[in-house]
Design a protein around this nucleic acid. Structure first.
Lengths: 345, 345
DNA sequence: TTGTAAGCGTTATCAG
DNA sequence: CTGATAACGCTTACAA
């Protein structure tokens, strides 16, 4: 955490408001353009000694090129905008951190843009404004944007770095796989009445909507009644109320696909509090596979996925666009999403 | 999520690579400087009609000032760097989102900078590089930086927007309050042997270190033996192993202060699996008060705090520095941190 | 009340 | 191999 005072003081040589390329040029006894060329890797075409001198001078002055200057002349900045959906994604922190880390390594910085509750069009407008102002090197979408939105952004001259998920009837591949895994698992376990549990109050939850649609599709395939839906708050009393209502209208047994592991826990412990058998009367399957569901008793059945795997295609997209790595397939590898069978189904 | 195609197309009038202030000036029949003045609020000194014309022209062209141009001439960008510590903070997502939202409303954008595992000095270096490159309008620190680091950054010309926490013996006020609340609660409940449970593998956990120090202080105050420490992984088997070791060396009963609620749950269910009484043989208190600990049975005792309260001083600092709001006291209001008494103590 | 002109720090083009 | 020179888009004295 703390750093030795000497260390701090010693970092870049004393330098009040930042050296510019002019300073470096002067110190090295060359021109600004030479400095620019050399510092940007056009090394081969210069005399060894000149290169040396320029590099020394830059190091000595602690010269750091100004992003503003670069951006102005290049027409785009070294920023990458990260659009984060307004959803309780599993592990958003980890996802953001992983992406930021990659972007960082490529010499870019991440600007976060959170979707807010409210009209999707407003969010798009805000995002477009940011894009126009910052002229970023690219945009990474974590799922808040529809294909049309991405098209619009791209036409505005902002490259989309995240792989475009194929949307089928408005549902992307990942959410499709997750919800299908949940529903089919419940059916396999013998549940013939299904339900989908949203997290209450998450104002505009695109992922939840997609997934409940998929669960409904699966029900139709198997000739089951359309799933009930319930809005579960993350407190015991509220969860019990919500669950009660479903049990009343749909009877038992009922298999409940939950929008995440926390909701899964809420439903599970609500059922137990209501003296319903889990599994048996109530089957519960979450999403995430994060540790918390696996720590408690009963252990939560859930759809697990490795954040790294899920994010890796995004990271590859970034590396491809920004770092010149080879482009890669966008599809999730087989087995990215898999049922972790716990004690609740 | 999706937006009507017409809506998208209609947004800014057709405009390929962005209109500049010259375009606006031409359309309005004035000079660039007039445009600049008017669009930056120097409205009073111009003829009503001119102001109108300029604004119309800007709107019509969908003119958005280039951040690069502004930054270059102003010497600083409209970016705010957010330094995030390498810790399992409770609700980092919410914190980042809240701050980003505020910053956004003030017309700035948030650049995230995550601390990584590894030498603190390396992180500082990376951060300094970002600051020198971006010349941000300010920096918000979520806890990764020592006072000396902040001084260094500030001397580099980067305003620190987050209130500087008073560090006493290297521990900031918040962590002090949290750990003290944990320890004193356990003592009150009759535990005379305490322990501190870290989350395993969190490479460099400054908050955990601070808090275990505080727990040790409290032990000393009450004339108790120094606390044991244990590293708890978030899986049942590993947690049981860790807990077993403590029970072996320290006996029972033992009161365990945990670095967060997940660790608290891991310890709680590990104890139950080991046929230890909770509470009784093992007392557990977490930190966070997030929903998950309150959903399960037994309900976790924890130190709760409202994210909004905790973050509000930071937000006020931002508003003060960037938005011209009045400066405010940095201290946490009374009762920001309070024990939520559950079934585990 | 409005326009002119200079300069912020960088990179690209082209001439030497 | 190296160096002028010209943008890039914006703000801001200062001049009219």
């Amino acid at each position: 955490m703390s750093v030795e005072p000497d260390e701090v003081a010693a970092l870049p040589a004393a330098r009040r408001p930042g050296a510019t390329s002019v300073d470096v040029a002067r110190l090295a006894g060359v021109s600004r353009s030479t400095v620019s060329h050399i510092l940007n890797g056009q090394v081969t075409r210069f005399a060894e000694e000149t290169v040396e001198r320029v590099r020394d001078a830059a190091a000595q002055l602690g010269y750091v090129p100004s992003a503003a200057g670069r951006s102005l002349v290049l027409g785009r900045s070294d920023l990458v905008v990260l659009a984060v959906p307004n959803t309780t994604l599993t592990n958003v922190q980890d996802i953001i951190e992983a992406i930021a880390s990659d972007v960082d390594d490529l010499g870019y910085s991440v600007v976060v843009h959170f979707d807010r509750g409210g009209a999707p069009a407003d969010n798009l407008t805000r995002l477009q404004h940011v894009v126009e102002t910052l002229r970023p090197a690219g945009l990474v979408d974590l799922g808040s944007l529809a294909p049309a939105d991405l098209d619009a952004l791209e036409q505005q001259g902002c490259p989309i770095l995240s792989p475009r998920a194929r949307h089928v009837r408005g549902v992307d591949e990942g959410n499709l796989a997750i919800a299908r895994a949940q529903a089919e698992h419940l059916v396999e376990r013998g549940y013939t009445t299904l339900a989908y549990a949203f997290l209450v109050d998450h104002r505009d939850d695109p992922f939840g909507r997609m997934r409940s649609t998929v669960v409904a599709d699966v029900c139709a395939e198997y000739g089951l009644a359309p799933p009930a839906t319930l809005a579960v708050p993350l407190d015991p009393a509220g969860a019990q109320t919500a669950l009660c209502e479903v049990l009343r209208t749909r009877g038992r047994p009922v298999g409940i696909a939950c929008s995440n592991d926390e909701v899964g826990l809420a439903v599970t412990f609500a059922a137990l509090a209501l003296r319903a058998a889990v599994p048996g009367d109530v089957g519960v399957v979450g999403v995430g596979g994060g540790s918390v569901g696996q720590l408690v008793v009963p252990r939560l059945s859930t759809v697990g996925f490795d954040v790294r795997t899920t994010v890796s295609s995004i990271r590859q997209g970034i590396a491809a666009a920004l770092g010149g790595a080879p482009e890669v397939a966008a599809a999730f590898p087989e087995g990215t999403f898999s049922i972790i069978s716990g004690d609740t189904t």
